[in-house]
Design a protein around this nucleic acid. Sequence first.
DNA 1: TCCCTTAGTATCTTTTTGGGTAGTACCTTA
DNA 2: TAAGGTACTACCCAAAAAGATACTAAGGGA
Lengths: 131, 131
Amino acid sequence: MLEPTKASLSESKALNPSSLSPLPQTKSTCPVETTLKAIGGRWKVLILRELFPGVKRFGELHRSIQGITQKMLTQQLREMEQDGLIHRHVYPQIPPKVEYSLTEKGESLKPILLSMHAWGEQFVDLPLETD
Amino acid sequence: MLEPTKASLSESKALNPSSLSPLPQTKSTCPVETTLKAIGGRWKVLILRELFPGVKRFGELHRSIQGITQKMLTQQLREMEQDGLIHRHVYPQIPPKVEYSLTEKGESLKPILLSMHAWGEQFVDLPLETD
DNA sequence: TCCCTTAGTATCTTTTTGGGTAGTACCTTA
DNA sequence: TAAGGTACTACCCAAAAAGATACTAAGGGA
């Protein structure tokens, strides 16, 4: 994605030579779609936001993010952990103590989120559904 | 979003003063979520990609984007038009001739998509589902 | 007649996503 | 006992999104 598609491959040779390098095409997923999958979950950008300042526990996240259920928080955290965006550190104790923090991968999303934030602020009059 | 949430509002005063400005909170939508809505549709980033080089007609887009149905293409184009990302120019003729092009808003998404592309390429080993 | 071109629309089905709700285990305190 | 704390799990359902398929209108050509 953002690399040539089938029709533009023959006529956009001069467009971006680096995108014509013989990289193996990963199935049908373009890199932008990869990134979208990583951050596109219902609550993921809000969770990322909460973790940028540092380590947080489940309960803190739950209280911080308005409207999220325990179930959805668990689900999204598990996905993000699986995707390598966050660490999940379980302390062997009762009551349970689990801490979440960003990985390097997770932290590297910050510039993207900041530019998305800026864009979204700029086009706040965008006639998008405000749910 | 990326502005303080309820828990961090009282304890992160020194974090980012500009985010504490008395801006009216738009419902529950943070700017990042606004941007995500704009580009998050199933086929939208692929369509944006096709329109960056310039004007395209429906059939060109349909042939360029592998796997998309006419129905989905129409639907996504209509949403993007409504969101102000693209122009839809109808020529009064038979057979129908309709051209699509990016608005300034649409074009302003390019840096974001490029950085998302770079991130996605860098973390191509991300254990995301490769559908 | 059939097929092609253009850019759709209408209807139905399937898949995916998100949420609701009740429950778990162990501890402490009133 | 009940209520609170911790961080989940299991099951079910509704809504949303995506897709499948057939059709439309007007023109042209074999």
